[in-house]
Design a binder for these strands. Structure first.
Lengths: 305, 305
DNA sequence: TGATTTTGTTGACTCAGTCAACTAAATGCA
DNA sequence: TGCATTTAGTTGACTGAGTCAACAAAATCA
């Protein structure tokens, strides 16, 4: 794609998105706030204690204009301003309880707008859209810091996601065939079917509402736990999520009184192997196999707890 | 019902992009045109011969406001308007040579803006951003015509997708619990593990590279085939995809010499039931159950082939 | 110490955008 | 056919979002 075509496409997208945002922002019309009001209220609500100058800078607003809006907010009891003891020219802006209520109401309304849009989409599409937004933002916003990842227990649909992401990854990267997806589906299906919350667990790493990693611990009997289906999506590598997930497994297994944690992996997964080494796993055996098409080197690792 | 984290992330992106577009649009300040002027000029310049009403609709502008702007453009010699011979109320708007010059100058300026942005990026990054813009647009722009749906055999990741979409759907719509995902994972996993291409099959309906439907036929032994996991995503309903998928199953089963096709479903799935009736299935038994939490009415349907 | 910069406020203004009322042509309907 | 209703576009009258210049008070610089 030539430079000019790229630029034209970007412009086209910008025209479309200008329109799209315009439509979304009509939502503020049935509240007493303008779009600018809402943006300011949002900024104050989420960064309590900013100064007027910082606010004007962030939102690219005229200081005079902002000053008037803040004055109005003050008389309406939405915000409180106190001079900054460190710089008496500067005013520290805080939301009052009423202000916070309004802020939250606006938030609810904005969320509903987007939820309504997302509702017309296929399952998986909102995730795709948000993931694309991440991409754009990461590229065009120099100040963007990646959203923090959270680790949580699995919920509806996550097991399917695990199977899908594992299968896609090994197929694309190593040319494994559908037998691998079958194995994963079996492991994951059995995990769900016999799920014993007292001794087993599934962790999902999520960033900005998008699944980016997984791992699960299953009960192998005789005090032995198995770590399975460790995965970190390529969009979230290098953040230490893999290590975090494995640490979580180890902590869980110790707490549940397991004596040993075992895992099976393949040697071309170097990042994973590094994590296993660092967390104290020991390689106990190795065998070449062709379980999924191409030849690979299966490895068994063990950690005494 | 979409995930809150997804929505928050999307809102965050929208705030960012509002800002970003605001900065880009400042570019128009050193021309005699406002942003609205520029949008109108662009629209006329690229779709010669539009009517004022169409223009107002496309750009979501007040007709009165637009009328005034067009009047100004006319006196400045940027456009020419002639009554539409087919409807004398309506005016056909065309750009004059001067108008086209201005339009192109604006275009050059907007391109330069974006080029400057892209210039600060690494090689490959502009392409990534534009590709992400495509993704968003395809998903959020209702006028972007939907790609036609196709039906194909399953491939890597599809079984995981089936589990995920089934689980999400039944959880969100009917409050079924994880036991359902476990059942689906088991069915789908067994299908993959014992997959016999001579007697079994999995169809995926796909649109624009995104999965929107599924169904599979498994061998039940004794000349009996089972139709399972029929699903059409809400974004693709009403296109007859469900019927198409079931027809495909029946054709396949006849060709493979099965004597009977059986399926199990639940009676609240009315669209599915309508398809089964229409394709000749007969309801043979029914039982209330609580297999997945809420009470439901399980049904067995049979089609003699 | 006095010159300069920074934070925020106020006065005065403009013009983008809205709303209601209207004309003229087209369409629907009995 | 003729009368009521709808649609395309225009104009008058208005509002209020946003801008610009000037200013006070505090902080910083040199």
């Amino acid at each position: 794609m030539s430079d000019i075509a790229l630029i034209e496409t970007a412009r086209d997208f910008n025209r479309f998105y200008t329109n799209f945002l315009g439509l979304l922002n009509k939502a503020y019309l049935d509240s007493p706030y303008t779009l600018t009001d809402a943006r300011i209220l949002f900024e104050i609500g989420s960064h309590d204690g900013v100064s007027a100058t910082a606010l004007a800078g962030d939102l690219h607003l005229d200081p005079a204009y902002l000053s008037r809006i803040l004055k109005r907010f003050r008389t309406e009891g939405l915000i409180r301003t106190d001079p900054d003891p460190a710089d008496l020219r500067s005013q520290i802006i805080n939301v009052t309880d009423r202000g916070r209520e309004e802020f939250e109401e606006l938030g609810r309304r904005a969320n509903a707008q987007i939820a309504a849009r997302f509702d017309t989409l296929a399952s998986g599409e909102p995730e795709a859209a948000v993931s694309a937004m991440h991409t754009i933002r990461a590229l065009l916003d120099p100040t963007a810091k990646p959203a923090p990842a959270i680790i949580r227990a699995h919920r509806a649909g996550d097991i399917g996601w695990i199977i899908q992401s594992q299968s896609r990854f090994y197929t694309e990267e190593y040319g494994w065939d559908l037998r691998f997806e079958a194995l994963v589906a079996e492991v994951a299906g059995k995990f769900l079917a016999n799920f014993d919350p007292a001794l087993e667990y599934c962790w999902i790493a999520e960033r900005g509402g998008i699944n980016v990693g997984s791992v699960l611990v299953t009960n192998g009997g005789d005090g032995i736990a198995k770590l399975r289906l460790l995965y970190v999506d390529k969009s979230a590598r290098g953040l230490g999520l893999g290590k975090l997930l494995v640490d979580e497994c180890i902590r869980f297994c110790r707490q549940k009184g397991y004596s040993e944690l075992q895992l099976w992996t393949n040697d071309m997964l170097e990042t994973a192997r590094a994590i296993y080494v660092k967390t104290g796993f020991r390689l106990v055996s190795e065998e070449r196999h062709r379980m999924f098409g191409p030849e690979a080197n299966g490895q068994n690792w063990v950690l005494a707890l």
